[in-house]
């Protein structure tokens, strides 16, 4: 029983209650960092770190946090973790941190993080909260990578920076193919995200109440 509950906590957000496609949280960064897969990967890793970290800390302190100031306290915890990861990226992955620019800092205001802290970590044990954070983080990451894969393939003809569409097909090499520049712009992400939400809700039968 306990194992099943733990599994549901972790696996639910991967698909059934995915933070992006079902709960529609964290959309802004999902649109902004999905032009290339490498930025989407690093962004997902950063979010998973912050989400698991904040869920664990909030859950561990849940009986100590005065309820009247709990939002401020949770934001302090989240902001601390986000600044940590931002500084670490600047020190060890400088080029990618330059591309992610403000979006790592904006994890502070990513609704998923505060949402899970308030809705889950404040009421559950440390272990369950860690699993919930991991599940939601990976659920977010999966969608980001899906969107990024489509955008990078159609927009730049590459996957993780590796050329997929053969070079000789391009117009400048005498072929007929042109990358779809629209996919590099935010509206391209909107459309792919919309299609994903549609597909997922058709399969799960989920409707807004």
């Amino acid at each position: 029983m306990a194992i099943k509950k733990a599994f549901d906590t972790f696996a639910g957000p991967l698909a059934k209650s995915n933070p992006i496609t079902t709960q529609v949280l964290g959309i802004c960064s999902a649109l902004a960092v999905t032009v290339k897969m490498d930025t989407a990967l690093v962004m997902s890793a950063a979010l998973i770190f912050v989400l698991v970290g904040s869920n664990i800390i909030v859950s561990a302190l849940r009986n100590l946090i005065p309820s009247r100031v709990r939002i401020i306290v949770m934001l302090t915890i989240i902001a601390t973790l986000v600044i940590c990861i931002d500084q670490i990226l600047k020190a060890f992955l400088f080029d990618i941190s330059k591309q992610l620019s403000i979006f790592v800092g904006l994890i502070i205001t990513n609704c998923i993080v505060l949402g899970r802290a308030e809705a889950f970590a404040l009421k559950n044990t440390v272990g369950e909260s860690a699993l919930d954070g991991l599940g939601n983080g990976i659920g977010y990451g999966l969608i980001l990578l899906l969107v990024a894969a489509v955008r990078e393939l159609l927009g730049s003809g590459t996957m993780l920076g590796i050329q997929i569409v053969p070079r000789f097909l391009y117009v400048d090499q005498g072929g007929w193919y042109v990358n779809n520049g629209f996919m590099l712009l935010a509206p391209g992400a909107f459309i792919i995200l919309g299609l994903l939400v549609w597909v997922q809700r058709t399969i799960t039968g989920y409707t807004e109440e």
Binding site: I65, P66, V69, I72, V73, T76
Partner: peptide, 10 residues
């Protein structure tokens, strides 16, 4: 207690 907690945290 609230003051104490918030200051410690910060």
């Amino acid at each position: 207690y609230t003051y104490f907690f918030v200051i410690t945290m910060a």
